[in-house]
C-alpha cells in the first residue's frame, strides 16, 4: 500500500472518516505519521474552542475578581483558586464521574426531553473542563494585568470625563489586553499541551477516535516500540507551538502598534501560568 493511499485512508480517521479499522500488521512510518497527525485534529479542536470560549469567561471572572462587591469577588476568587490549585488530571476525573450521574434517559424540562448522553463524550465533557480550566488561568492573568494598569492612565481618563463603560472600553480594556498578552500566549501553549491528557486519563475513546497521543499509544502498544510514535507526537507539538507563538505574536504586534518601538512588550515564553 502506497503512502498516499494511507494518507487518504487515515488522514481523517480521528473524526470517523475513511478506513474504519486501524492498521493491525506491517506498521509503516507513514501510517504512524498520518494517524498521529490525524489525531492532532482533536488537540486543535479542544485547544481552539476552549481558548475561544474561555477568553470571554476569563475576562468576566477577572472583572468580578477586581470588583469591590464581595458578592461578585468571592465566587470569582474561589473559582480561580479551585481550578488553578488542583491538577487537571483530577479535574477530568471528577468531571467525568459527575457527568455520569446525570440520568441517561434525559432530563425532562417543561415537557421537552433534554438528552444527556453526549455530556460524557470527550468532545463535550472534556471541552467543558478545559474551558473552565483555561478560564481560571487566563482570569488570573487578566486580573494581574488590570491591577498593573498605570495609575496615571486612569487619572487622565477621569480628567477627560470618561467614566464607567467608556473608561473601561477605551482605557482599561486595551491596556489590560496589551499587558496580559505575553502571559496569555504562554497559557495558550500550555492549554494545547494539556489537551493530550483528555484521552489519556480522562475520557474514554469512542470508536477508536482519539487525539495524537491516543494513536501514538496505540502504535507503541502494537509495535512494542515507544521510540518511534512518541517522538512523532513531540515533533508535531513543537511545530504546533511554533505556529501558535507566531499567530499570537501577530496579535501582539497589533496591540502594541501605537507604541514607540523601544517600549513594545515582546512575547517571551515564560511559564507565567500554573497548570
Amino acid at each position: 500500500m502506497s503512502c498516499w493511499q494511507t494518507v487518504q485512508d487515515y488522514a481523517f480517521r480521528s473524526i470517523g472518516l475513511g478506513e474504519n479499522l486501524l492498521p493491525r500488521t506491517d506498521f509503516t512510518l507513514c501510517q504512524q505519521i498520518t494517524l498521529i497527525g490525524s489525531g492532532l485534529i482533536w488537540n486543535i479542536y479542544f485547544g481552539v474552542l476552549a481558548l475561544a470560549f474561555g477568553f470571554f469567561l476569563a475576562v468576566a471572572v477577572a472583572l468580578a475578581k477586581s470588583s469591590r462587591r464581595a458578592l461578585l469577588r468571592k465566587p470569582a476568587e474561589w473559582f480561580v483558586f479551585v481550578l488553578r490549585g488542583s491538577p487537571l488530571f483530577i479535574q477530568f476525573f471528577l468531571a467525568y464521574e459527575t457527568l455520569q450521574l446525570l440520568p441517561k434517559a434525559g432530563i425532562n424540562l417543561l415537557g421537552i426531553t433534554v438528552e444527556t448522553s453526549w455530556t460524557t463524550r470527550a468532545w463535550a465533557g472534556a471541552l467543558f473542563v478545559l474551558f473552565l480550566n483555561t478560564s481560571a488561568y487566563a482570569a488570573e492573568i487578566f486580573h494581574g494585568a488590570l491591577r498593573s494598569i498605570p495609575k496615571g492612565d486612569l487619572e487622565a481618563a477621569e480628567a477627560y470625563g470618561l467614566t464607567g463603560w467608556q473608561k473601561f472600553r477605551r482605557i482599561q480594556w486595551p491596556t489590560m489586553l496589551r499587558l496580559a498578552w505575553p502571559s496569555y500566549t504562554n497559557e495558550a501553549i500550555f492549554l494545547f499541551h494539556a489537551t493530550t491528557l483528555v484521552f489519556f486519563s480522562g475520557f474514554p475513546a469512542f470508536r477508536q477516535m482519539g487525539d495524537a497521543l491516543y494513536y501514538a499509544n496505540y502504535f507503541a502498544d502494537k509495535t512494542f516500540n515507544p521510540f518511534v510514535p512518541y517522538p512523532i507526537v513531540a515533533a508535531y507539538f513543537i511545530a504546533l507551538t511554533l505556529l501558535l507563538t507566531f499567530a499570537f505574536s501577530l496579535v501582539n504586534k497589533h496591540l502594541n502598534r501605537h507604541l514607540p518601538s523601544n517600549q513594545k512588550s515582546r512575547i517571551r515564553l515564560r511559564p507565567q501560568i500554573i497548570r
Binding site: L21, L22, R24, F200, S201, P204, A205, F206, R207, Q208, N217, Y218, D221, K222
Partner: peptide
C-alpha cells in the same frame, strides 16, 4: 467497552460494534 490495547479491544473493533476504550478493566 473494553480495556485499551487488549486482544478484546481489537476483537470488538473488528466485530463492527462501537468500541469504547478505558485505561483499566475496572472502568
Amino acid at each position: 467497552s473494553a480495556q485499551v490495547s487488549t486482544i478484546q479491544a481489537g476483537y470488538v473493533a473488528e466485530s463492527g460494534a462501537t468500541l469504547l476504550e478505558f485505561a483499566t478493566p475496572d472502568e
